[in-house]
């Protein structure tokens, strides 16, 4: 029996060993090399941690995949509210009318233009500037992930042009800048667990 009591004869406690395993902190690290009781205790705790890992793996396998029906049901029930964001005005022919597009629709447009470029996936998009005031300068800032093997610089240049065209087509914003930051280069297909 490696764990007869909470406190060993050397004066150290299981709580200390337990904390040591999680944090690497111990009042007297050298002691752990020489004390057989503490080392047995650590061995037992490590075996338990390994068993805990096994339990987690088994629970995770039993929970199923994110593509299973249980997740489909949950997602179908969510009914996620749209995030309209700010209201971006559009000119009207009749002074009585109020015409606008939502910031959310423009962010989605920017994402879809970026996503349509081979090897690129859009991340966060920001419209910096007061989009609610016609004519005020707006900077578009886009985070981008690029799949490994695709040329970064040509991508960014042609994407900037595609975005400028799409924004000119779908908004009346005064686009002062389009800043693209490549935040990630994706090495290889991610392993599904």
């Amino acid at each position: 029996m490696s764990m007869p009591n909470d406190t060993f004869e050397c004066g150290h406690t299981i709580e200390e060993l337990s904390l040591y395993l999680d944090t690497g902190e111990f009042p007297d690290p050298a002691h752990l090399e020489s004390c057989p009781e503490c080392r047995n205790g650590l061995d037992s705790l490590r075996r338990l941690a390994a068993a805990g890992g096994e339990l987690f793996a088994s629970d995770l396998a039993a929970a199923g995949s994110g593509n299973d029906d249980w997740m489909k049901d949950i997602l179908a029930n969510l009914a996620l509210e749209l995030r309209p964001g700010r209201s971006i005005p559009l000119r009207s022919d009749d002074p009585a009318d109020t015409l606008s597009e939502t910031e959310g629709s423009i962010l989605a447009l920017v994402r879809s233009v970026a996503d349509s470029l081979p090897g690129a996936v859009a991340g966060k998009v920001r419209l910096d500037g007061d989009v609610t005031v016609p004519g005020s300068p707006v900077a578009v800032r886009l985070d981008l992930a690029v799949l490994f093997g695709h040329a970064l610089m040509p991508s960014a240049a042609s994407l900037r042009q595609d975005l400028a065209e799409a924004l000119a087509r779908h908004t009346e914003l005064n686009i002062a800048a389009i800043d693209i930051t490549i935040t990630d280069v994706i090495e290889a297909p991610r392993e599904e667990k």
């Binding site: 209201s87 559009l90 009318d97 109020t98 015409l99 606008s100 597009e101 959310g104 629709s105």
Partner: peptide, 25 residues
């Protein structure tokens, strides 16, 4: 703008203020 005009046309001769919001492109 074409949608606003279409609504105005459709409701004529009623005077109408049209509010159009694009929520998805």
């Amino acid at each position: 703008r074409a949608v606003a005009a279409a609504v105005r046309n459709h409701l004529a001769p009623e005077k109408v203020a049209v509010q159009v919001t694009v929520v998805r492109i």
